[in-house]
Design a protein around this nucleic acid. Structure first.
Lengths: 335, 335
DNA sequence: CTTGGCACTCTCCGCAGCAGAGTGCCAGCC
DNA sequence: GGCTGGCACTCTGCTGCGGAGAGTGCCAAG
């Protein structure tokens, strides 16, 4: 069905359409991409490609534009990876170079990704499954209110506020903190949850112990992947007139952490592309998502990516996303 | 110059324009706002108002639209405050009701504000100047890396990562933590900074003590107002066709914390309105900002507000911003 | 299977004409 | 002096039209 030339035609059409955002016709195609056949031949090929669902026409006797299916084929089989220029590589290193802590790394990564892809960047905080608990403390804020603090070996801090009986003495609170801390120290979260479940309540500090244990368990169990940072939203405004109508649902989707989480959820380690209607969320069905895992599996692991129009430069976007993912991963491994 | 009727005309024009986003002419005006004079009279008034700079015409022989100066006069002298409906008040209470901690309060406030004003909401984290330090800890993460943790009585956590000499013993780290903690506990940040400056380095733990003191001082000195949360960006897409062109710079401005900080910086306790070109930032000169302080002066204090088109419903927006500011303030005072 | 030719279709653009909305101005009126 | 009705004028927006241009589909021939 699809011989070499037809694929070449599809590739050329996509390349051209991405560049000029205009339907592309047979004549322009042979001129610009020295295909050594006549426009008529190309027309036949285009007709076939349209029959198969890879192309479509905005109206009769206009040029063709790719469908989501067309982009899919392009990404799967036709795209040649465009390596990053040395300048881009340098930019990435420089950008990440001075990062101070995890927050800073993530913040810089978002900016970087948005800037080099000129699209909307989303970066998930790394989940560190092998991280161990380094510190646990209970800070009394008021008579009846305390803060439970948990610090992992990666420097990630989680906290929970708990209510305590006002009559509790400070040293009781302290004792419980020390007790629980000694149990969970240097454990991974799974180990810690198990250890805590076996912690027998002591007479005297019953209530607080229970409260703290419960809070810590909740903290450990809470999905630590809930934080996702978005950046470069202004790039949405550049996506061309036609895109403006589809803009509101996209902005809406980008504000919903839940949507973003699901979006990044199924991404494996390599670069994943989801094109138009392949996205579950209806608001994002006029966009494509290019994402990649980063970090080290079973260690600091998370996902990052960009959201852009389906008419995007896939090779270059994919290259950028992959590169950033790798650099950030390496950076995390070192720090 | 501007007698009663002229002001009434201005008010009517603004009301109408806000509602219909179309230039409004003399005839429509007398019909819709039972002004008991003829269109010709209104025309004369409009001419005067235009001369004075309160109105302008998109082109000859179209209706008039208000200028920034017109809106300014409207806001200062003509707007009657629209009280919130009971339903809205209920919505506010309910929305804030279940908030767990400070992060949650801020997150909910942003959503709430964006939803009831249908505009872009920005909320600054409250600065608690009378908060005292409840807890300080140094957690060793790796051989050469530690985390300095600071918790205030409001439950706010700040942290800094520091490098420490690898040969440092754990008990040295601990000793320094205890030492510094005992110095700063229950002090406000200003007091603490002063106390720390007088802390004499001890032989033996010299290096770490210095490092920790420096980190803590930096934490205390760091402007804690640097966090601003933005929400409801999708509402930008609803602002009408004409706004689309001005959208990119607005989105850009909204991502710059620095810009937002400056924007909210000069806001006092009451509702402040900045219209169009009154905004310093060029990207925001096609928008108006309605902001208000919230919380209690000299206690938990910050600013919140919304960004929308200059053609916005000022009375209702101002009422909403004021109401949300008050409710959140009250909520913070209780919790 | 490819190609040149040809008829056909559809969009886009400029133009003209017309209706409608709105204005500015003027002369008259209270 | 301020208000009003009347009137001429201007500008936009819509509609219809015709032509140019781009592009297609199909067909018959190589």
């Amino acid at each position: 069905m699809l011989d070499e030339r037809k694929l070449a035609v599809l590739r050329a059409i996509i390349t051209d359409y991405v560049e000029n955002s205009e339907p592309v016709g047979s004549k322009a195609l042979v001129e610009r991409y020295h295909l050594d056949v006549s426009p008529a031949t190309i027309r036949n090929d285009m007709a076939t490609l349209e029959e198969e669902g890879y192309l479509t026409q905005p109206h009769t006797s206009a040029g063709r534009i790719p469908t989501d299916k067309g982009y899919r084929l392009f990404v799967d089989r036709l795209a040649t990876v465009k390596p990053l220029s040395p300048a881009e590589k340098r930019a990435i290193s420089t950008f990440l170079g001075g990062a101070a802590d995890l927050d800073d790394v993530v913040a810089r990564t978002v900016r970087l990704l948005a800037q080099i892809t000129q699209q909307v960047a989303i970066v998930q905080y790394p989940v560190v499954s092998t991280a161990v608990i380094r510190h646990l403390d209970v800070v009394r804020l008021h008579l009846d209110r305390a803060l439970v603090l948990l610090v992992t070996s990666t420097g990630r801090i989680t906290q929970a506020y708990v209510e305590i009986p006002p009559e509790t003495r400070d040293d009781q609170v302290q004792a419980v903190a020390v007790r629980v801390a000694s149990v969970v120290r240097n454990m991974t979260s799974t180990q810690a949850v198990r250890a805590l479940s076996g912690l027998a309540p002591e007479p005297g500090s019953d209530a607080i112990l229970g409260i703290v244990v419960q809070a810590v368990t909740a903290l450990l169990g809470a999905d630590p992947t809930t934080r996702i940072v978005v950046g470069g939203v202004q790039n949405l405004a550049r996506f061309g007139e036609d895109f403006h109508t589809a803009m509101e649902p996209v902005l809406e989707a980008l504000e919903e952490q839940v949507v973003l989480l699901r979006l990044l959820g199924e991404v494996r380690d390599d670069v994943t592309v989801r094109i138009g209607h392949e996205n579950e969320h209806v608001g994002l069905q006029s966009t494509s998502v290019v994402a990649s895992g980063y970090g080290m599996p079973d260690d600091a692991w998370a996902t990052l990516g960009v959201v852009g129009p389906t008419r995007m430069n896939y090779p270059s976007t994919m290259a950028s996303v992959r590169a950033v993912a790798r650099y950030v991963g390496r950076f995390l491994a070192e720090g």
